[in-house]
């Protein structure tokens, strides 16, 4: 069935689904870096914000709406920042997972503060009034058209990640994740694997940020903040590290609940999310998607 029929006349639903796809690219970037390579990043929202603000500012101040130019510019800035951070983090001796988490967390904090206080970035209001994007001079005039654009890009990036994870390089990423020192003894250039992956994920996050800007028409400081960074990690924790689809499903389910729950339990909902994060990390370190396997192995034990 065509999405047009599903969404027929329902702009609100279109926007929710579009946002899920945009966050889908974002969660993919966390899964590729943390889930696949063991880079415990709390900074994906910062790069998401960088992509979003770059797009918002260029679109509103320079009147550029061509989506390829917008994505290209967001990519350049995202990759440059990703390169700086990853060179700093990974080019020397091995650093611990917590160190990486702290530095990237700080990055998110700095980005949110900057966005909040710098008038060029619109301070607390962010950048409103971002126009619909255009493709080859043809302007996309409605949410449903933007949805299609986002859907196509999401599918392409999803396929790209799927291809990489299932390639020999995917095994390299996992070798570094599971025992980075051991990987070095085999001759892996561990810093390069981490830097390459981090930059790839910075690129994904900044594309997601760009698509967020053009689909929502607004970027605000919270899109690069601590709350979103933590939430992206929650999606991966819930969905299960090391799988591409688990985190996507977890994110989609949470997003659907999110809107409802924020209305029903405005103050309790974030706390509930925090408790969920804690419980999964303690009792299901491999995420909700590992439940079928756990049940299976329990059954096997019984039949033995």
């Amino acid at each position: 069935m065509s999405p047009v029929l599903i969404f027929a006349g329902n702009d609100y639903l279109t926007q929710i689904v579009t946002r899920i796809l945009v966050y889908g690219i974002l969660v993919l970037s966390v899964e590729m870096s943390w889930g696949q390579t063991g880079i415990f990043t709390f900074g994906q929202a910062a790069l998401f914000g960088v992509g979003g603000y770059a797009t918002g500012l260029i679109a509103t101040k320079a009147n550029i709406t061509d989506i390829f130019i917008l994505i290209g510019l967001a990519l350049i800035i995202g990759i440059a920042i990703g390169m700086l951070i990853s060179l700093f983090l990974f080019s020397g001796r091995r650093v611990g997972e917590l160190y990486v988490a702290l530095v990237t967390l700080a990055l998110s904090y700095i980005c949110e503060r900057l966005a909040n206080s710098w008038t060029f970035l619109g301070s607390g209001n962010g950048v409103p009034g971002i126009p619909y994007p255009s493709i080859f001079g043809h302007s996309l005039g409605s949410n449903i058209q933007v949805f299609y654009l986002v859907l196509v890009i999401f599918i392409l990036l999803m396929l790209l990640c799927f291809y990489i994870v299932n390639s020999q390089f995917g095994l390299t990423m996992n070798a570094v994740r599971d025992d980075e020192e051991r990987a070095e003894f085999f001759g892996y250039k561990r810093p390069r694997v981490q830097i390459f992956t981090f930059i790839l994920c910075a690129a994904l996050a900044s594309i997601a940020g760009c698509l967020f800007a053009v689909s929502e028409g607004l970027v605000s400081p919270s899109m690069s903040g601590l709350a979103l960074s933590t939430t992206t990690v929650l999606w991966v924790v819930l969905g299960g590290r090391g799988t591409l689809f688990g985190p996507l499903i977890a994110m989609a389910v949470l997003q659907i609940f999110n809107t409802e729950m924020q209305n029903v339990l405005p103050s309790l909902w974030p706390i509930l999310i925090g408790i969920m994060l804690l419980l999964t990390m303690v009792f299901l370190p491999k995420g909700l998607s590992s439940i079928p396997n756990i049940i299976k192995s329990k059954r096997e034990v019984k039949t033995l």
Binding site: Y163, S167, Q168, F169, L171, T172, F186, G187, Y188
Partner: peptide
């Protein structure tokens, strides 16, 4: 395989 491919370039690895 992890041992065998350790010293190969990323672009070879991505293309398997």
């Amino acid at each position: 395989l992890i041992s065998l491919q350790a010293k190969e370039s990323f672009f070879k690895q991505i293309r398997s």
